[in-house]
Each structure stands twice: as C-alpha cells, then as structure tokens.
Computed example of a mutant assay.
Amino acid sequence: MSTFLVIGAGGNVGSEVSRLLEAAGHTVRRATSRQPGPGQVPVNLVTGEGLRDAVAGADGVFLLSPPGHTNQDQLLGPVVDAAKALGVHKVVLLSAMGADADPNGAMWKAERHLEQSGLTWNVIRPNWFMQNFHTFWLHGIKTAGVIQLPTGTAKGSFIDARDVAAVAAVLLQGDTHANRAFDLTGDEALDHDQVAVLLSQALGRTIRYEDITPETMRPGLLAAGLPADYADFLLTILHFFKLGYSERITTAVQDITGVAPRRFAAYAHDYRAAFA
C-alpha cells in the first residue's frame, strides 16, 4: 500500500479523496493550515510552512489551490518542486475547466509547471461543482428561495464533487492515464431555471432563479469576505459561463472510473439536509 498527501483534505473534493484512498487500504496524510488533529499534518501553502515535512515519504500528492487566492502558480509551484526533490512518484492537480485557455493565467502556469517537472502527473479540470449550491450560493436559497447569479440563460454541465474525487483517487493509484489532462463534467447540461426546478422537487418548496448583473453581485461577494481580486476573478468566470463556455460535456468521468457521473437530481436529493 502507498502513502498519499492530500492537500485541501477538509474540502468537498479532498475529504472524499481521502476517504476513498483509505478505503482502498492506503495511508493518507490530510494537510491542514489550521491546528492539526489526528491524521492531519500542518501545511500552509501561502507561507510554505510544513510543506517539506508533509511531502517527505509520500508516494503521491493530491494538490489544489486554497480558495480565495488568484496567484495559484506561486502557491502550487513550491509543492511540485518539493515533490520532485523528495522523490514523490505522482502528483494529481485539481485545476478548473477552461484554465488551459489562458496562457497568461496563474492556474495555466501552475499546470505547465507540473507538466514540465519530470514527475508523473495528471491534471483534472472540473466544471462548476454542484456543491456550490449548498455552499457559495446557499444564503439566497435558504433565506429567499432564490438563486441569484449573472449567468443569463446559459447552461452548465455541473459536476458532483464526489465524482471529481473518484477520478482523482483512480489517477493517484495507477498510471494507466499518466501524464494527461482531463476536463471533467456531468453528463447533462442545465440552465439555472432547470436547476431551480430540480432543487424545488428535492426540497419540497419553490426555488427560483434570478439573473442579476455582476455589479449587483459584487458587493455581496465582498461582504462575504472575499478579497476584491478574487471577487473579480469569480465574476469573470461567471461571465464565461454566461457566454456558453460551461455547457460542453465530456465522458472523462466514466472513461476513468467506469461509472457514469451523478446527475443533478441525485445531488439535490443527497444534500437535502444542507438546504434545510
């Protein structure tokens, strides 16, 4: 069995990656930037504190950028360098669908740094997470029964974070798909009116969608504590959603895991309690 370092182990994807790897009999080091508990190791990607100790002796690393930061290349590059220096076999990097479209983007630079490192690697680029609806977009849904986003009538092939984790776990444990990048999506594309209908059916109350302007959304993002540059980044990628760039569907989840990705109705059913 192998030892894996999971960075972002407290998040929707990282926690499930950790669970799947442990279920397969591996040892998992769960990285945290907070005071570590049992099974956790301290790693601060912003300062680099704890990084080399956490990486040393690991066979593989699951890597993502901490939320709220737009300098992903500066945060992730040192992890790749430490993995290379300390003899890690494989790194799986969680990126985002569309990151490879901008050669000046920080995430694209992080991807390229990994690809050119000499390590065995995979990059996974998921589309928008279904889980955003019971985290980032939850307040409006709970308090007013409304999803407020500047996305017009465009569709997105939303993906369940559990399916992203399943892909990551498979890639970490084998090299069948080594040194490749994959765009990960669900197998249906929905607009936000359709999402609202599915949430309404699962929750037993009416949820509706309201198209708003970026200027309307920005103050709420700042009030929620997002740094200004990250709020602007979020509004930029929401604009790309509105332009139709999130509608594309791939078969990568099933190709890698052998299982079809979850549909939005299943997500809404499974997470009913989070919307209560």
Rank of each mutant, 00 (worst) to 15 (best):
K84N: 00
E16Y: 01
T27A: 13
L76Y: 13
L20H: 00
K84W: 06
G77M: 00
V43W: 03
E16D: 15
L76A: 13
F4V: 10
G48F: 12
V61N: 14
R29W: 10
L51Y: 12
G50F: 13
A83G: 11
V92T: 09
T70C: 04
E22R: 10
V88M: 12
P36L: 07
G39M: 04
V46L: 15
L63Y: 12
L45D: 07
A24V: 01
R34N: 13
L94H: 12
L94K: 03
V46M: 13
L63R: 07
A9P: 12
T120D: 15
V91E: 06
G118F: 10
L75Y: 09
V6E: 15
P103Q: 05
L5K: 11
L5R: 10
A56M: 04
V13G: 05
F4M: 07
G50L: 10
F62D: 01
N71A: 14
L94A: 06
P78H: 02
Q116W: 00
V79F: 08
P42V: 01
L93W: 08
P36M: 03
V123A: 01
G87Q: 04
N71P: 00
W108C: 08
N122P: 02
V28I: 03
L94Y: 12
E16W: 01
R19G: 04
H113P: 05
L119Q: 06
G98S: 07
K109G: 15
V46Q: 09
V79E: 06
L114E: 05
A24H: 07
V28S: 02
V55H: 12
P126D: 01
A101W: 15
A83T: 09
A58W: 10
A106K: 05
H69E: 08
L20K: 02
V6N: 15
V43R: 13
H26K: 10
L63C: 11
A110M: 04
H89F: 02
R29H: 14
I124M: 13
R34V: 00
Q72I: 01
L86I: 02
S18K: 07
A106Q: 14
G60A: 14
